[in-house]
């Protein structure tokens, strides 16, 4: 029972933050994207953290989600809420199709294969102009505001939807990690051959994880599209700004832990914004350079992620408690 208290405090604190921010302003947008990227990194964490398969192609599923709901809205007037599930289903199918040939690959080979799939998705979206609108991108139309239509004048509702999404994805992650599937995944991660010997169908478990991860990030693609309002193939199928960024957030935060992606997003998204705010008026590219240096320093300082800071804090507090 006691272990729920800190979680409840964190959730309540996160729920209070948007109320303190200007509802049409800048920081609420940053906060919303922070929550969204935390949720995306958490979805990636399933395959990247639990199954230990470093996917660099999650932009493919993410983009499918963003495009599916937006195209359904534009062509048939279907609410993005429904479009989100359609996108999730397609994202899951894509994840399965990609996972079947690639899951046998390990380490760098898996990473490279998934990277290629992400790029393929981008090229398809660019070329298939009749469906996707091609390189000029899609604008989410502004329909009369309302919850059912997933249309709001302010960013406040978007912030709460992103927060709820993060809670759901984190809960799914925790349930899987603690359940039988989590044990199987850990067994595979430690020693795939030994896992096979004790009767784990390693391929099946990995495929299941890949599909769940793909479904979740595709659904988050819809949320992203609704907040960003405009996107093109380069935005949502981008290896750098989606696939690698999502992996980076989980890795900086602490891969394989539930709190890792959240810490990672809380660090990366606002710091990158702050650097842009402070330095981008100066020499061109300076803000990104400084951001890169900060990232390197953090990785050197905490190679196993920011989550180790919390662990260190906890041990230190316990040590203090023992002394007194």
């Amino acid at each position: 029972m006691k272990r729920w208290i800190p979680i409840a405090v964190i959730v309540l604190a996160a729920a209070a933050v948007p109320l303190l921010l200007n509802p049409t302003g800048y920081w609420i947008r940053v906060f919303t994207f922070t929550l969204l990227f935390a949720a995306m990194a958490q979805a990636w964490n399933l395959i990247g953290g639990l199954a230990n398969q470093l996917s660099l192609g999650h932009a493919a599923f993410f983009g499918i989600g963003a495009y599916t709901s937006t195209i359904l809205l534009l062509k048939f007037g279907i609410s993005p809420w429904l479009g989100m599930f359609a996108g999730g289903a397609l994202g899951g199918v894509a994840a399965l199709i990609i996972a079947i040939p690639t899951m046998r690959l390990q380490g760098h080979y898996f990473a490279l294969a998934t990277l290629a799939f992400g790029e393929v998705a981008r090229v398809i979206a660019n070329v298939w102009t009749s469906l996707t609108g091609g390189p000029v991108g899609l604008s989410v139309p502004f329909v009369p505001p309302g919850f059912a239509a997933y249309s709001f004048k302010q960013l406040l509702p978007h912030a709460y939807i992103a927060l709820i999404a993060l809670i759901i994805v984190t809960a799914i992650f925790e349930v899987i990690r603690r359940g039988a599937m989590g044990y199987r995944l850990r067994a595979i991660r430690e020693n795939a051959a030994a896992a096979e010997v004790i009767g784990i169908d390693t391929t099946k478990v990995k495929l299941q994880t890949a599909v769940i991860s793909g479904v979740l990030i595709a659904m988050l693609g819809t949320l992203y599209a609704q907040v960003a309002v405009f996107f093109d193939p380069d935005t949502v199928f981008n290896a750098m700004s989606i696939s690698i960024r999502v992996a980076l957030i989980a890795i900086i935060g602490g891969v394989g832990t539930a709190i890792g992606p959240i810490l990672g997003a809380l660090f990366i998204v606002p710091v990158e914004e702050l650097m842009n705010d402070l330095f981008s008026a100066g020499a061109a590219g300076l803000s990104q350079l400084i951001f890169g240096v900060i990232l390197i320093v953090v990785i050197l300082w905490r190679p196993r992620g920011l989550v180790t800071v919390i662990e260190a804090l906890r041990t230190w507090l316990r040590g203090k408690g023992a002394q007194s």
């Binding site: 960003a228 935005t235 981008n238 700004s241 842009n276 590219g285 990104q288």
Partner: peptide
């Protein structure tokens, strides 16, 4: 700096 990402430009 808008970077090359439309979403960042919007932000």
């Amino acid at each position: 700096d808008s970077t090359s990402t439309p979403t960042t430009a919007g932000t």
